[in-house]
Design a protein around this nucleic acid. Structure first.
Lengths: 125, 125
DNA sequence: CTAATATATGAGCAGATGTTCATATGTTGT
DNA sequence: ACAACATATGAACATCTGCTCATATATTAG
């Protein structure tokens, strides 16, 4: 029993588990939070569309909007978020701003996700 | 001018861009949506904690709750979502249910995200 | 069957998120 | 300076999300 008078379930089940070991290899809460925040950036179809559109070459905001069938405003808002997360970087040329993927990691992460989807579709009936 | 009497911005800027080419290599909307949905699963710190806890070995629900300082209910709700997305799989043994990562892709994706975070922290001042 | 334990789930709620609309900022040409 | 164009941003709003609480289901022991 603990101080509250209730037995903690964890004390009774899966005794074989080495909890200390699991706890030791866990990253800090802050680190896990940051990773989650990173993946959150990829977790919206509008942002994913934008990122994928930038896979091969840079594009200006208006072209992205046109290509993806989105409002200029919506694209701009999402680009702001992506820029904040260092997933894309802007390059100004006169009135237009060209965006491109910030680094190759972004490409790798998306590719990995895409792979996983494809595999699952293959497995699905 | 288009039919609405407004010029489309995209017609005037970045003339050098080959939009057809970009459009051709774009995956279907459905595919992009699925990838976004996949990443959304990784985009919550509670779920990320759970996934990372399962990195090395399977764990039962109550142990996850204890280890991560979460309610059993909260963990169970998130496990349901993760299971739905085929990121984890359950194994029943008597009263307790052990969860483990569904496949190695999950590990790879998390590792890739973690790498990205580490790199950025290195770059930061 | 009943009690105890482990997990799952539905309802309700508070906070986060993405879009639209209007408007501001920045750049170029006249 | 002014007009036109490209982009950015703030406010408002509707939707989505994750948590808590209560309760249901499943399994085992007695």
């Amino acid at each position: 029993m603990d101080q509250d008078g209730k037995k903690l379930a964890a004390e009774n089940c899966c005794h074989g588990q080495n909890m200390e070991q699991v706890e030791e290899m866990m990253p800090t809460d802050e680190c896990l939070y940051d990773v989650a925040e990173l993946f959150k950036l990829f977790g919206d179809s509008t942002r994913m569309k934008i990122l994928y559109a930038l896979f091969e070459s840079e594009l200006c905001v208006c072209h992205m909007a046109q290509l993806l069938g989105l409002t200029q405003s919506a694209v701009s808002h999402q680009l702001r978020i992506l820029k904040g997360g260092r997933l894309v970087k802007p390059r100004r040329e006169g009135k237009t701003v060209y965006y491109s993927l910030a680094d190759d990691h972004v490409r790798k992460i998306i590719a990995q996700g895409m792979e996983h989807i494809m595999e699952q579709q293959g497995v699905m009936v």
